[in-house]
Design a protein around this nucleic acid. Structure first.
Length: 462
RNA sequence: AGGGCUAUGGCAGAGUGGCAAUGCGAUGGAUUGCAAAUCCAUUUCUUACCGGUUCGACUCCGGUUAGCCCUUCCA
């Protein structure tokens, strides 16, 4: 029985889809004007694993992850670069897809963009104005009137008075209430604009997601997710917009991921303490980065640091080493869902996608492979390890490939490696241990570990 | 200031009202020419602090302290 922690009710609820066997899930993607960093990776790897597990659990899932391709920062960056904002977003969209793919993320089923949803955005704003949840200010911007929505603050556990009390003394605006937020921004010179009933302009930040959820999944769907920093105001405002416009519950379950931290502080652009996915992949295997993210629960904060990555790499290597002697040329046996390892894995994942516990099961399987007394037994467990690894999006490479591939900028001279191994073999046959060890030291300097096994010498990167 | 989350061994990180997973690391043994890998064993936490409930709490409740996140753009 799948249980998911729901931010709205702050409880782990037994999950029940709206339509039996089907799940509709929407995850807030990124605002696209720069390289994605490890914080983004954390959130979307988490949802990738959720996606894989829901499908493994035989749900018919529709996974939507949007791209926000119009907003203040995009316009500012495009102006800085002296390019059209579309050029900027197209470039980084491509980079995002490359980086996400490198981390083993499957593509969402639908990846809608704000700029492709202007008609739907306008439609919702019109509905909100008709029902008095929104109004156009004197200066031309259209606002959502927050006090009109009685449930405002239910997701983030805030109340209007407290929010207003805590706010900064701002500049004078034409808002009716200081908490009112923009649905449609009147055009300013030099900015991209679209035509609307309220004049030329562009959408505000939150309205696109109300439009895209409805467009892709309908008024009421199962799961809405995103980083925990989106809880307020973004998701709170989405609820206000959608529930006011649609007159029904928006999302049944809210999933929020914990933030990645560097030196106990949130990784963010403004603090300039972020590591881009690209840069990290120059030093670590992509799969190691992914494993690192699975090694803690998706809701907890994740502390990014080199030591933790090194430790993750060693752990993942142990799993791959257990698969190294398996012959993958022959098809592995079918995995039985009643297998105790598979059941244990399922129990862990059913408990709010508890990946650390699920990973622990993988190590039990690896140990079973290492201890297996027959090839059949080893192969049966290897099949389980690869299958369950696949649900987490790891262990899908050929072990030898994972263990020997160069990382990032490393160069690989296979011919030299082979030649040195041959030379060492000869030295060992001559019982010239000094020379043999000298060669092994040379390998160590290259970051390569040798293993003499059953007359053969294997090597892997350390 | 208001709201939320968290506090576990050298490090990372789960579970559990009744011997505290798993991984990394360390130590010893088996194995090896020596290693590596593997297996076996050991290693460390009175589970932040104080009080309560209970036959029994790390686990439930209350308080304290500390950290982080949100209240401004943010995955």
């Amino acid at each position: 029985m799948l249980h998911i922690y729901d931010t709205l009710t702050q409880t782990k609820k037994q999950f029940k889809p709206i339509d039996a066997g089907k799940i509709r899930m929407y995850v807030c993607g990124i605002t696209i004007y720069d390289y994605s960093h490890i914080g983004h990776a954390r959130t979307f790897v988490a949802f990738d694993v959720i996606t894989r597990y829901l499908r493994f659990s035989e749900y018919d899932l529709t996974y939507v992850r949007n791209i926000t391709d119009i907003d203040d920062k995009i316009i500012a960056r495009a102006n800085e670069n002296g390019e059209d904002f579309k050029q900027l977003t197209a470039r980084f969209e491509k980079i995002m897809h490359e980086d996400f793919a490198a981390l083993g993320m499957a593509e969402p089923d639908i990846e809608p963009k704000a700029t492709d949803s202007i008609a739907e955005i306008i439609e919702i704003i019109e509905q909100l104005i008709e029902s008095n949840f929104a109004y156009q200010g004197e200066d031309g911007d259209v606002y959502y009137h927050v006090p009109e929505f009685a449930d405002y603050g239910k997701l983030s556990k805030q109340n209007l008075e407290a929010l207003q009390a805590g706010e900064r003394v701002g500049v004078a605006t034409d808002k009716k209430n200081s908490m009112d937020f923009v649905l449609w921004k009147k055009a300013k010179p030099g900015e991209p604009t679209w035509d609307s009933p309220w004049g030329e302009g562009r959408p505000g930040w939150h309205i696109e997601c109300s439009a895209m959820t409805k467009k892709c999944l309908g008024k009421h769907f199962d799961i809405h997710g995103g980083g925990s920093d989106l809880q307020f105001p973004h998701h709170e405002n989405e609820i206000a917009q959608s529930e006011a416009a649609n007159g029904c519950t928006f999302a049944n379950t809210w999933i929020h991921t914990g933030m990645v931290q560097v030196d106990k502080v949130k990784m963010s652009k403004s603090l300039n303490n972020f590591f881009t996915i690209r840069d990290v992949l120059k030093e670590f295997r992509a799969e190691t980065v992914r494993y690192f993210m699975l090694s803690s629960h998706y809701r907890s904060q994740l502390s990014y640091g080199e030591e933790n990555l090194i430790s993750a790499d060693a752990a993942l290597e142990r799993l791959y080493l257990s698969l190294r002697d398996i012959d993958f040329q022959q098809p592995l046996p079918q995995v039985d869902r009643d297998n105790p390892f598979v059941e244990k894995f399922g129990i862990a994942m059913d408990d709010d996608f508890n990946t650390p516990e699920a990973v622990a099961v993988l190590f039990e399987v690896a140990k079973a492979i290492n201890k297996a007394e027959s090839t059949d037994s080893a192969r049966a467990n290897a099949a389980i390890l690869v299958e369950l690894g696949g649900v987490l999006g790891i262990l899908q490479q050929a072990p030898s490939e994972f263990l020997t591939a160069a990382v990032g900028d490393e160069t690989q001279d296979d011919a030299l490696i082979e030649q040195l191994i041959l030379e060492r073999k000869q030295a060992r046959e001559d019982k010239n241990w000094a020379r043999a060890d000298e060669i092994r030291d040379q390998f160590n300097d290259m970051g390569i570990v040798l293993e003499d096994k059953e007359g053969k010498t294997l090597w892997r990167r350390n």
